[in-house]
Design a protein around this nucleic acid. Structure first.
Lengths: 230, 230
DNA sequence: CTTGAAGTGTCGGCTACCTGACAGTTGGCT
DNA sequence: AGCCAACTGTCAGGTAGCCGACACTTCAAG
């Protein structure tokens, strides 16, 4: 995702472990650090007392946590949680990063373009909930994870997918059976393996693709091929 | 919404009529003008060949059209359409505005904070679709309109609300009857009048409020009291 | 005044999905 | 080895909201 702005950032980055369940942003609390995952998946989750939780956005090595701290909000109303681990991330102080961004127009442009791509992801989430059945939404979500991990195995439970997709756990079980029946995936305890990505994209239909296309348009390749600092 | 940045913008603004149905942004086409409505309601709408349309965001005098043009995207995948008219708007050239923003840190901060508030609106839209029944979503949407217009009368049809809320037209008719039965609104042909806003907020519950609170936190009062250039 | 389009009310059938409950399975821990 | 917690499968009942169809009302235009 970075180019020669990387040199600007590098001295301020620390590599840290990102463990499953770790909260990169806690709702309502000041955001002190910004994280750039080098792998795995993190999601932005809304939790309200009367309504339970719902996932609203997702990112991995394609994005960063808590960008709202650089948009004039010291905190976010949403949690950001590491959901699929197995990777490290680069961490920076919010204040430092904000200042760097303020100074470098190209860094600012990069951030702006990422924010724009994230907006499209959010907007598309709404469209999915309005128009697409659970099956397609599950497919969408699996594809979004697949884009962000190495290999075809994703470690996650039905319970977990249910929160992501915004559906009942039992409905997820059924959906996964259908997807498995057609040979798109293989489901084992706590693990889903993508076996036929193309078919999965077919099932997802318009539920998948638009935000990804927008990301590529604004920021370049998404996923395994994306260049990352090492 | 503006403060003394206004002086910077003023010379580049032209007052224009905003008519119902007018597209302030056309999906996929370059955004040449940015509009700041002085009243009425505009929405951001996703239209996909296979899935029909869905509304994803809304704004009025609290916001501006096509901000993505200032985020590095020349175009947006979504239309922005004037839905409730009866007001003028201020228009500026995208290029000019982008340049001004690039130069003025305070203008940039203002824009960033607005974008952040819009993100929360989008995210909350997802939460609504996951957790709240149609009735609450209708209430939410009426409240969001009410925040942005003068008076308590909103000119809109059931058909229209159905697209906004992401539901069937007949379901909207039923919902409006319920809301009217409890005395929260009065529905006439092509018009809804808010008669008891508090009760409406009760019905909406958590479907309404969070994005509005966030807007106030970041940008100050939303709605009728908000200071606007005149 | 007439006509027609746009908007509204309503109904019956249908289905996707929720809800809760429970039994079976797996795998890590002691 | 054995146990417990987490995970998965499944089922039966209920319901919100979809879908299509149609009759009625309102209003603006000719």
């Amino acid at each position: 995702m970075e180019d020669d702005d990387l040199a600007l950032l590098q001295p301020h980055l620390t590599r840290v472990e990102l463990g499953r369940g770790q909260k990169l942003v806690v709702a309502g609390e000041p955001i002190e650090h910004i994280y750039f995952p080098e792998g795995g998946v993190a999601t932005v989750v809304s939790t309200l007392p009367g309504s339970g939780s719902a996932e609203v956005g997702i990112f991995g090595r394609d994005g960063l946590s808590g960008f709202c701290a650089m948009m004039g909000a010291e905190s976010s109303p949403y949690d950001t949680i590491v959901q699929v681990d197995g990777a490290t991330g680069l961490r920076a102080d919010t204040a430092t990063l904000t200042e760097l961004t303020e100074q470098s127009p190209s860094l600012r442009s990069l951030l702006a373009r990422y924010v724009q791509s994230f907006i499209v992801q959010l907007a598309h989430g709404i469209v999915c909930h309005v128009h697409h059945r659970i099956e397609a939404r599950v497919a969408r979500w699996l594809l979004m994870c697949h884009d962000r991990i190495d290999g075809d195995e994703i470690m996650l439970t039905h319970d977990f997918i249910s929160m992501m997709v915004g559906a009942q756990r039992t409905s997820i079980t059924v959906s996964l059976h259908i997807l498995e029946g057609v040979g798109m995936i293989r489901a084992q305890r706590g693990r889903v393996t993508i076996t036929d990505r193309e078919k999965l994209e077919d099932i997802a239909g318009e539920a998948y693709g638009l935000p990804e296309a927008e990301y590529r348009r604004l920021l370049g390749p998404l996923g395994k091929t994306a260049a990352r600092p090492s």
